[in-house]
Simulated scan of single mutants.
Amino acid sequence: MYWPLLIVGAFLTVAYVVIKIRHNQLMTSDAVFWFFFAVVLIVAALFPQLVFSLSDLLGIESPANFVFLCVLVVVVYRLLALSVEMARLRSKVTALAQDVALKDASNTSPSAKN
C-alpha cells in the first residue's frame, strides 16, 4: 500500500516548507501552494475510496497511477508558473540594470561635471 507513503511524504513536505520559511528561503505565497499540496496528499491517503472512485471514473486502471498522474500534473503546472515568473523577473532585472547603467553614464559624463 502506498497510502502511508503519501502521509509521510506530505508531513515531510510540510516540515521542509516550515524550515525554509524560518530561514527566509521561501515566500509565503509559495508556501501556501506546498501546504495545499500536502493537505491534498493527506486527504487522498485518509480517504482512499475517493481516489479509487476518481480513477474508476476516469478509466485509469490503478489508483496509484491516478495519484502519480495528478502529482505529475501539479508539479508540471508549478514548473510552468515558476518559469513564467522567472522570465518576468529576468526582464525586470534587465530593465533595472539598463536604467542604472544609464544613470551611472549620465553622472560620469564630462558635461555633468561642468
Rank of each mutant, 00 (worst) to 15 (best):
I19Y: 10
F37S: 12
V93A: 07
L79T: 14
H23Q: 14
F47N: 15
F66R: 04
D30Y: 01
A31T: 02
F35P: 07
T28Q: 02
F11S: 02
W34M: 11
V74L: 15
F36V: 06
F37Y: 15
K113I: 12
V39I: 14
T94A: 13
A44W: 14
F33N: 01
L79E: 01
L82N: 13
V32L: 11
Y16L: 13
T94D: 13
L26N: 00
C70Q: 14
M27L: 12
I21D: 01
G59F: 11
A15E: 12
S53Q: 15
F66E: 05
P4A: 03
S106M: 06
G59N: 02
M1A: 10
A31L: 04
V73S: 10
A38Q: 03
T94H: 09
E61I: 02
H23E: 13
I19N: 12
L89G: 00
D56G: 14
L80P: 00
A10W: 03
S106V: 06
F47H: 14
F52G: 11
L80S: 10
L41Y: 15
K103S: 08
D104K: 08
T94G: 07
G59R: 03
V75Y: 11
Q98L: 10
V75T: 13
A38W: 00
L79V: 09
V17G: 04
L6R: 05
N107R: 09
Q49A: 15
S83V: 03
L12P: 00
Y2V: 07
C70Y: 12
V84D: 01
R78Y: 14
V100A: 09
K92H: 09
A97V: 07
P110Y: 01
A95N: 12
V43P: 09
F36E: 01
T108C: 00
V51S: 05
V71E: 10
P63R: 08
D30H: 11
P63I: 11
Q49W: 14
V14K: 09
S83A: 13
